[in-house]
């Protein structure tokens, strides 16, 4: 599980706060969505969990241990990460990309190979067919499948995702969303996912934290946010998918 205690982040010595006094608990096996507009501090919050960013104050615990006391590189190897820009290594084969973290952890070659095949199978890219390809030979959706496989390869309990499906076309996106949700459930992963797409958050997350200007306005299950918004901004963005659905329905009736 993940716990943020009074975490603050400032890039200018405290004059302005990118993330202000945030406390969040994510239970084991829970899927937390972090949502908000660009610049609201959601990505900074995510990156502080594996120390890609350092908090200015506060504590962050992953599985009960304060991350600030740990070697950042070893910490990151034990936390899966799916990147917004996918970030596959273009000079490595698909298999080498998937095996990157086990390789850093110096697993036995046989074990790496087996795990690599397993993870690729899991994301629907059979090793025999795709393992030796170069990332540039894959479609965007396939590349992010590799990204997911890479994040899962070292069997992390915690996976962080930074707008992982943002760059994909709608059909591929919803396919991957569903598949990933299935993987998360079956592997009992603790996931924190940053998104600005409320529909995505509602469909995937067990709970959603709505952020604005560095402050978490409300944390709750989709049901709680929909039925008991405690802030106008929360009401607005939660209502958005529903309004759009309604509008679509009207359009189709008019035809």
């Amino acid at each position: 599980m993940i716990e943020l205690r009074n975490v603050q982040k400032s890039y200018d010595g405290g004059a302005t706060l990118a993330v202000a006094d945030t406390s969040v608990v994510v239970e084991r096996g829970e899927f937390l969505g972090l949502i908000g507009a660009s610049g609201c501090g959601k990505t900074t919050t995510l990156k502080m969990i594996n120390r890609l960013e350092e908090p200015s104050s506060g504590e962050i615990l992953v599985n009960g241990r304060n991350v600030l006391g740990q070697n950042p590189e070893l910490l990151r190897r034990n936390i899966g990460y799916v990147f917004q820009g996918i970030g596959l290594f273009p000079h490595r084969s698909v298999a080498e990309n998937v095996a990157a973290v086990p390789h850093l952890l110096q697993w036995e070659p046989d074990k790496i190979q087996a795990r690599c095949e397993q993870c690729m199978e899991l994301v629907g890219l059979p090793f025999a067919e795709y393992g030796q390809r170069s990332p540039s030979q894959l479609s965007g959706g396939q590349q992010q499948r590799v990204g997911v496989a890479r994040a899962l390869a070292a069997k992390p309990e915690v996976v962080l995702m930074d707008e992982p499906f943002g760059a994909l076309d709608p059909i591929t996106r919803s396919e991957l969303q569903e598949e990933f949700k299935g993987i998360q459930r079956s592997m009992d992963l603790t996931v924190v996912m940053v998104t600005h797409d409320m529909t995505e958050a509602l469909l995937l997350a067990d709970r959603i934290a709505v952020m604005r200007e560095g402050v978490v306005l409300q944390i709750g299950t989709p049901y709680e946010l929909l039925h008991n918004p405690q802030h106008d901004y929360v009401r607005e963005i939660v209502a958005m998918p529903r309004q759009r659905a309604k509008r679509l329905e009207e359009l189709m009736r008019d035809e």
């Binding site: 890609l52 990460y81 996918i86 970030g87 290594f89 973290v101």
Partner: peptide
């Protein structure tokens, strides 16, 4: 590419 370097950092490369 910055995103490749960030990915390398993010997966725990020194």
């Amino acid at each position: 590419s910055a995103s490749v370097v960030e990915a390398a950092r993010g997966i725990g490369m020194s």
